[in-house]
């Protein structure tokens, strides 16, 4: 499904701010894999997701999605294969447009934008049903501007938008980090439901170790732009937070350092 081969990315090369953010990263995901990603501050987790999404091009290496070489495809062309939710709830939606209009934009991901109507009555009815499943009361506010929604509502909507046209790969970058704990739990539940429903191949960054253990069938840990740990199957199921901390110390030779990392 996803094949990443030896990708490198250095920010601000040949300056004092030079930063090797991805250092020979390779990764293979099978169809339906739900992988959680953890690591310290600046480990390169977001950089990895941005590399996959094509926010910029990698310095070297190759990226295949479903055997299609997307390494040199610009962001908007790669979007055809990807669903994305960001850490910042402001980032995933158009605030001045309606809930229905945002969904309609997402429903046309990967399609040529023609001069046909931007949204149809049939679509609206369909969106209403989907919103009702979120259980946030958004189905009664179909035409409200997204700018009026709370952070949690926005993230749930962004999730819905990301999965509206089934993506080959779902990229979640700490999408619950900006929410209060109760809302975070709810958005995570929604995530789990949406991923299960369509059996989506998913990469989810989280700073919450418990979530990283509780969700998905595989866990990878990053440090200094490298993947230093890759746990799946039975081993992942039996994993504890203590195990993770210990494994990190062994693999990286230092203590895990992330000021936002939550152990439990």
């Amino acid at each position: 499904m996803l094949r990443v081969e030896n990708i490198y990315k250095t920010f601000n090369p040949n300056t004092v701010n030079e930063k090797k953010a991805l250092d020979d990263v390779s990764l293979r995901l099978n169809e339906g894999d739900f992988v959680t990603v953890i690591g310290g501050n600046g480990a390169g987790k977001s950089t990895l997701l941005n590399a996959l999404a094509g926010v910029w091009l990698v310095d070297s290496g190759r990226i295949y999605i479903d055997n299609i070489n997307v390494t040199r495809l610009p962001e908007h062309k790669r979007a055809k294969y990807l669903g994305r939710v960001f850490q910042d709830p402001m980032m995933g939606t158009a605030a001045t447009m309606g809930i229905d209009e945002n969904l309609a934009l997402a429903a046309r991901r990967g399609k040529f934008r023609s001069l046909m109507p931007g949204i149809t009555a049939k679509e609206k009815a369909h969106y209403k049903e989907l919103l009702a499943e979120l259980d946030l009361g958004l189905e009664t506010r179909l035409t409200s501007k997204v700018g009026l929604l709370s952070g949690g509502q926005r993230q749930a909507l962004t999730l819905l938008m990301a999965s509206l046209k089934k993506p080959k790969l779902l990229l979640l970058d700490e999408h619950t980090a900006a929410l209060d704990p109760k809302t975070a739990v709810k958005v995570l539940e929604t995530t789990e439901r949406i991923v299960q429903k369509d059996n989506l191949t998913t990469l989810m960054i989280t700073h919450n170790m418990k979530d990283a253990i509780a969700h998905g069938n595989r866990l990878i840990m990053m440090n200094n732009g490298r993947i230093i740990l890759d746990i799946s199957g039975e081993e992942k199921k039996k994993l504890t937070v203590e195990d993770l901390l210990e494994k990190f110390a062994v693999a990286s030779g230092k203590e895990l350092d992330n000021d936002r990392m939550m152990l439990g």
Binding site: H76, F86, A95, M161
Partner: peptide, 15 residues
Amino acid sequence: RATGCNPNMSRAQGI
């Protein structure tokens, strides 16, 4: 309209 409102989101939606 989306492009003007949120270019990041627009690109993520394939625009």
